[in-house]
Every structure is written in structure tokens, then in C-alpha cells.
Lab assay of single mutants.
Amino acid sequence: TIDDAFRAIERAIQAENEGRYREALKHFLDGGEMIVTAAEKEASQKVRNLLLHKGKEVLEWAEHLAEWILE
């Protein structure tokens, strides 16, 4: 659900702030994927587009974090 997705993102932010970057990455990926999944089930085109945009933002952040971890 969207609530689960945002809880995962909150955990990711907390982990990132505490320097637990790999854990943060996992939570960002989980949250982003949950948002995209919820968007695919959404009946309203406007809400679907907003959710897809937010999911994409979260997944892009996860990608940047992963690249930073690997440096």
C-alpha cells in the first residue's frame, strides 16, 4: 500500500541519516517499487501519473545512492 511505501521511505531516510547506507538503499528501493505497484492499480489517471512520478523519483534517488556506495 501507499502507507507501507511511505513507511519504507521514512525508514530509508532515518537509516541514511544514521549512516546505514545499504539499509537505506534497500528501504528506498522497497518504497519506490511499492509506489509504482500502487500506481499500476490506480483507477484515476491523474493519481496514477502522480504516483508514477513519485515512485520514479524515489527509485532514481536509490540509484544515485547505490552509485555513491560503490565509489
Score class of each variant (00 low, 15 high):
residue 65 L to A: 10
residue 5 A to F: 09
residue 50 L to G: 05
residue 16 E to D: 15
residue 42 E to F: 10
residue 43 A to H: 08
residue 26 K to Y: 05
residue 2 I to S: 03
residue 32 G to P: 02
residue 71 E to G: 11
residue 57 E to F: 11
residue 27 H to N: 10
residue 16 E to I: 15
residue 7 R to M: 06
residue 17 N to G: 06
residue 19 G to A: 02
residue 44 S to E: 14
residue 5 A to K: 00
residue 22 R to M: 12
residue 10 E to Q: 10
residue 69 I to F: 07
residue 56 K to Q: 09
residue 3 D to K: 13
residue 9 I to W: 06
residue 8 A to L: 15
residue 13 I to W: 09
residue 45 Q to V: 08
residue 26 K to C: 14
residue 26 K to M: 07
residue 52 L to A: 03
residue 31 G to H: 06
residue 10 E to S: 07
residue 15 A to I: 05
residue 56 K to C: 14
residue 20 R to K: 07
residue 53 H to V: 11
residue 26 K to W: 06
residue 52 L to E: 04
residue 17 N to A: 10
residue 13 I to E: 03
residue 3 D to I: 14
residue 29 L to A: 01
residue 9 I to H: 00
residue 26 K to R: 10
residue 30 D to Q: 13
residue 20 R to A: 03
residue 22 R to S: 11
residue 64 H to P: 01
residue 7 R to T: 07
residue 18 E to M: 07
residue 55 G to S: 05
residue 25 L to D: 02
residue 16 E to W: 15
residue 63 E to K: 14
residue 1 T to W: 14
residue 18 E to V: 05
residue 53 H to N: 13
residue 38 A to E: 08
residue 42 E to R: 03
residue 15 A to S: 05
residue 2 I to W: 07
residue 54 K to C: 15
residue 15 A to E: 04
residue 63 E to R: 15
residue 19 G to C: 09
residue 35 I to L: 15
residue 5 A to E: 01
residue 4 D to E: 15
residue 67 E to F: 09
residue 4 D to L: 10
residue 11 R to M: 14
residue 11 R to W: 09
residue 68 W to I: 07
residue 41 K to G: 07
residue 6 F to L: 10
residue 30 D to R: 12
residue 63 E to C: 12
residue 14 Q to S: 05
residue 57 E to K: 14
residue 8 A to S: 06
residue 34 M to W: 07
residue 52 L to T: 04
residue 21 Y to W: 04
residue 12 A to M: 06
residue 69 I to Q: 01
residue 44 S to R: 05
residue 2 I to K: 03
residue 8 A to V: 12
residue 37 T to D: 05
residue 57 E to C: 15
residue 37 T to W: 09
residue 65 L to R: 00
residue 61 W to E: 01
residue 11 R to P: 00
residue 12 A to D: 00
residue 64 H to T: 09
residue 34 M to I: 12
residue 67 E to C: 10
residue 60 E to K: 11
residue 55 G to I: 07
residue 29 L to E: 03
residue 45 Q to I: 13
residue 70 L to N: 09
residue 29 L to R: 14
residue 55 G to L: 15
residue 58 V to D: 01
residue 17 N to R: 15
residue 7 R to F: 04
residue 17 N to F: 11
residue 54 K to E: 02
residue 70 L to D: 08
residue 29 L to Y: 05
residue 29 L to M: 08
residue 20 R to W: 04
residue 41 K to F: 10
residue 30 D to P: 02
residue 16 E to Y: 15
residue 69 I to N: 01
residue 50 L to S: 07
residue 24 A to Q: 01
residue 13 I to G: 02
residue 3 D to N: 10
residue 65 L to P: 00
